[in-house]
Design a protein around this nucleic acid. Sequence first.
DNA 1: TTTCGTGCAAACCCTTTGCATTTGC
DNA 2: GCAAATGCAAAGGGTTTGCACGAAA
Lengths: 141, 141
Amino acid sequence: MGHVHTIVDKLTEKGYRLTPQRIMVLEAIEHSHDHISAEEIHADVVKKYPHVNISTIYRTLTLLEQLGMVTQTDMGGGCIRFHPAERGHHHHLICQSCGSTIDLEESALLPLQQSLRESYNFEADLSHLAIFGRCRNCRSK
Amino acid sequence: MGHVHTIVDKLTEKGYRLTPQRIMVLEAIEHSHDHISAEEIHADVVKKYPHVNISTIYRTLTLLEQLGMVTQTDMGGGCIRFHPAERGHHHHLICQSCGSTIDLEESALLPLQQSLRESYNFEADLSHLAIFGRCRNCRSK
DNA sequence: TTTCGTGCAAACCCTTTGCATTTGC
DNA sequence: GCAAATGCAAAGGGTTTGCACGAAA
């Protein structure tokens, strides 16, 4: 139940109510190894709580994001995925051939961030970056 | 009329028909200094040719992309923009505060591309990359 | 008991599709 | 004249919203 305490605190200290829906959305996100879409969260929650509506999922996601518990990544092509904020910044290499995603260490992007700062005086927010291309397997085919 | 010859050739040599709609969509894209959305293209074309339907714009964009005359960039948040392909690969820094976009030289991304290849054996397609952050002006406020 | 949160249905935006009509060739 | 392209209207996917009911505090 790892972070149930955290969500209880975060919600109550700001006057939000603790509802089963909110807890289950957060759990669905935390239990997902990969990243998870709104519809997948909904499918997951519905297994235990059949009446939950997808609009509640969206409203809850907005709230959890405001509370800093969840972050979203725009994977391109209108594809949005969620993951727990405390998993920290991580980035993705997405294979356009097979669709697989590879997690990328923060350090791989630091040189780019640095050079954008120096050359353009631009502070890049690379926290949700997704980079498209072809992965090892697909390249060798 | 710069590239009208090009489009005439490209269309006819593959058996596609030359229609006023197709020419006007291409012109709208070429005359746009910045990048332009499907709806903006439509608005532009309608000025001269009031009956043109937005579905024709989308169909034409798909065709022009196949012909390699136009490329699209996913700016995130469901925001897709088009620009002439011969303007070449270029990338964008997008300011999340003021919305301005800065063109980025290809060379700025080569080191990243190189390191992804070496460390992950991943061939990154950075041709339509958009990077979010804060621009010079907004940083100094 | 009093808000706040929810379910439901409908609206929304952007994009795509089916079909009859029009057009380029 | 015939196939290809268009306009129109309708459907689609994913997300948001208005409202009355239900539940948390």
